[in-house]
Design a protein around this nucleic acid. Structure first.
Lengths: 340, 340
DNA sequence: TCTATTGATTAGAGCGCTCTAATCTTGTAG
DNA sequence: CTACAAGATTAGAGCGCTCTAATCAATAGA
C-alpha cells in the first residue's frame, strides 16, 4: 500500500526530483532523453503524482466541490453527469456531497467541501440561507444551479420555468384549447416560476388562467383532477392541463381515465421535466424538457472562467426549455364542448 | 480568497501552531483555557483546517474514491446516497467520478481517483478488466458493488439476483400460475443471474421455465410480449410474466393491453428494481426491491474495516431482495384456460 | 529544599510536491 | 580561446498541516 514518490522516480531515473516534477507537468524545457528516462522510471514504478501534495505545493486546486440537494432526483443526477464530463475533460475532480434537504446538514456539507480549498463550489438547488452562500463565495467562486442569488461572487444557472410553462400553453392554445388549467407544484423548487409563466402565457392568449393547487407527485395530480371534476361541469371542464411535473401529470391522467375521460381525446395533458417516465411508450407524455446535462456543463464553464480570472462579473444563465410533443396532447375536439 | 492558516490562529490566540493542531483534532491534552482561546480565535478568523494539508502530514486520507458506472441509473444514485450518508457520518468525503461505461474511460477515472491517495475506492458496476481492479487493490482497499471478484484485497456487495427472481416466481406460483415466462435482460448487468434464478425456481416448483430474450427497456418488453403472443395460442399463453426490470415490465404491460389482455386479470406481471416508476399509482407494479441504500452503507463499512485494519479477509455481501406486491399480480383466473 | 511525576505546551522535522533562483552545459560569435 | 547566451538541470525553501521528542510548569513526595 506504500506508493512511490517523486523522489523514488528521480533516483531510478538518475535525475533530480525537480526534473521529474517538470516532466510530470510536461514542461517543454526538458530534453527528450531525460523525459524518456523519467517516463520509463515512472512507468516501471507505477508512479502517479499525488494530487493533494501537488495542490498544496502549487497553491492551486483541481477540486470542484459539488453539493447535491438530492441525487435520487434524476434532474440533479443529469446535471452532475454534465458537470463530471466537463470537469474530467479539463482535468478537474469532483468532491461530492449531499445536503439531505436540510439547511443544517447542507451547512456541514458545504463546510466540508470548503475544507478541501476547492477551485470552486457548485451547489445544486441548495436550501442554505443566502448568507451562507455569500460567505462561501468569499472563499472561492460559487455557482448555483436551480437557485438564484444577487451576490456578485456567485454565478447562477437556471432553467427558465416561465418559458417552459409558456411553451406548454402555446402548444395547447395552438391546438385550439381555450380552457386550460395548471396543476401548481406548491412550494416545490421552481413551481412558482412555472405558475407565473402559465398565468402570463394564458393572458397573452387572452385566456383566463385556471390554477389548481397541487404538488409534484402522482397522488397530487390525482387529487387536483378530482377537484377539477368536482368544480366544473363536464362541458366546462378544462380541455388542457399543464401539470407541475411529469409525476403530477401521470397522476392526473390516472384520475381522468378513472373518470371515464380519454387522454388526449377529451383532455390534453402536458408534463414537465421530460423524465424517463415521459418517454415510456406506455405513457408517451408530451412534456417540457430542460437541457440538464448542458446546465452542468455551463455551471462548470462559469466556474472555470472565475478560476482563470477571465471574468469577475456575475453571470446568470437562464436556459431555454423545449417542448417534447408526444401522445398526450391533441387538437381540441369539437364534440367536447370546446367553444361555447 | 486567501484563507487563514493554523499559524494565523496560533498568533491570534497567543499559542503555538502545535497547540492549535491539538485543539483542532480535539485532543484531550489541552487545558480548557487554551482550548477556549484557540476556538475563539479560529471562529473569529473563520478558520477551518485544510483537509489536503492534514492528509499529507498525517499520511492518512479521509477521501473515498467512488466511480459510478452511470449516475442516471437510479440504482446507482441510491447506492451513492447510502454511501454518502455513511461517509459523512464518519467524517469521510467522496471524490466521485463517472466511467462513461467504457473500459478506457473508466481506467482514467480510476487512475484519477487513486491519485488522491484515497483511504479506499468503491466501484459501482465497473467494466474495467479484473486486472485493473486487482492493481488498484494493491494501492488501497477496493469495494465492488454489482460486480464480483476473486481477488483477496477486494470486497464485494451484490444483490442476490437469483433470489429476486425466485421471489417473483414463488409469488406467482403461490397465486396458482403454472405457465410463467421470463423476459430476459440479455447482456445487461445482473440479467444472467435473474435468468438463472428464474429457471432454478421454476424447476423447484416443477414448472417448465419459459425464457424470452429481451432487454431492459420498455420497447424490449413490448417486443418480447408480441413474440409470446405470436408463439402461443391464447389458451397456452403464459399467465405470469417475470420481467427483467421495471421498464421492461411497463413495455410488456403496454403490449398486453394493446392485445386486449388485462393486467392482472389475464396476465400477472412482476417487475424488477422497484423504481419510482413502479410506485406510481397509475402502474402500481408488483416488483422486486433491492436494499440499495443499504448496499451503499455496507460498501462503506466494508471499506472502513479494511482501512482500520480490522479485517484482511475479503468479504462478499449478497443482499436479499424483497418483493413489493402491488396491483399487477393476482390469482390465476379459471376462465383464462389456466389448467388444461 | 530538591527531585520525581504528571500534564500542558512547543520546537522542529517532514509529508510529497512546486517554484524560484542558482548552477551547469552546450553552442556560437567575436 | 574566451565570453555569453540559451537551454537544461538542480538546490532548497516552503505549501499547511501532523507528530515525535523535548521543554516547561506545577504539584507531590522525600
Amino acid at each position: 500500500m506504500v506508493r512511490p514518490t517523486m523522489e523514488d522516480v528521480a533516483a531510478r531515473a538518475g535525475v533530480s526530483r525537480a526534473l521529474v516534477s517538470l516532466v510530470m507537468r510536461n514542461s517543454p524545457k526538458v530534453s527528450d532523453t531525460r523525459r524518456a528516462a523519467v517516463l520509463r522510471a515512472a512507468e516501471e514504478l507505477g508512479y502517479q503524482p499525488h494530487v493533494m501534495a501537488r495542490s498544496l505545493a502549487s497553491r492551486t486546486s483541481t477540486v470542484l466541490g459539488v453539493m447535491v440537494n438530492d441525487l435520487r432526483n434524476a434532474f440533479f443526477a443529469d446535471v452532475v453527469e454534465g458537470l463530471d464530463a466537463a470537469a474530467q475533460a479539463a482535468g478537474f475532480d469532483l468532491v461530492l456531497n449531499t445536503g439531505g434537504r436540510s439547511p443544517a446538514r447542507e451547512g456541514n456539507a458545504l463546510r466540508s467541501l470548503l475544507s478541501f480549498r476547492p477551485a470552486g463550489v457548485i451547489l445544486l438547488s441548495p436550501v442554505v440561507p443566502a448568507s451562507a452562500i455569500e460567505a462561501a463565495s468569499r472563499q472561492c467562486p460559487v455557482v448555483l444551479v436551480s437557485r438564484t442569488s444577487r451576490a456578485s461572487g456567485v454565478d447562477t444557472v437556471n432553467d427558465d420555468g416561465e418559458a417552459g410553462s409558456a411553451l406548454a400553453v402555446d402548444h395547447l392554445a395552438g391546438l385550439g384549447h381555450r380552457r386550460i388549467a395548471h396543476l401548481d407544484g406548491g412550494g416545490a423548487a421552481g413551481a412558482a416560476q412555472r405558475r407565473r409563466g402559465f398565468q402570463a402565457a394564458m393572458r397573452r392568449h387572452g385566456l383566463e388562467p385556471i390554477v389548481v393547487r397541487s404538488e409534484h407527485t402522482d397522488t397530487g395530480g390525482e387529487k387536483a383532477v378530482r377537484e377539477l371534476l368536482a368544480t366544473y361541469s363536464r362541458d366546462d371542464l378544462p380541455t388542457g392541463l399543464v401539470a407541475g411535473n411529469d409525476f403530477n401529470a401521470v397522476g392526473a391522467i390516472s384520475a381522468l381515465e378513472e373518470a371515464g375521460l380519454r387522454v388526449p381525446e377529451d383532455v390534453s395533458v402536458v408534463g414537465y421535466d421530460n423524465t424517463s417516465l415521459a418517454a415510456l411508450r406506455h405513457l408517451s407524455l408530451t412534456t417540457v424538457d430542460q437541457p440538464r446535462t448542458e446546465m452542468g456543463r455551463l455551471a462548470f464553464e462559469a466556474l472555470i472562467e472565475r478560476v482563470r480570472g477571465d471574468r469577475t462579473e456575475p453571470v446568470r444563465h437562464l436556459l431555454h426549455p423545449s417542448l417534447v410533443v408526444r401522445s398526450t396532447t391533441t387538437e381540441v375536439s369539437l364534440t367536447g364542448g370546446s367553444s361555447r
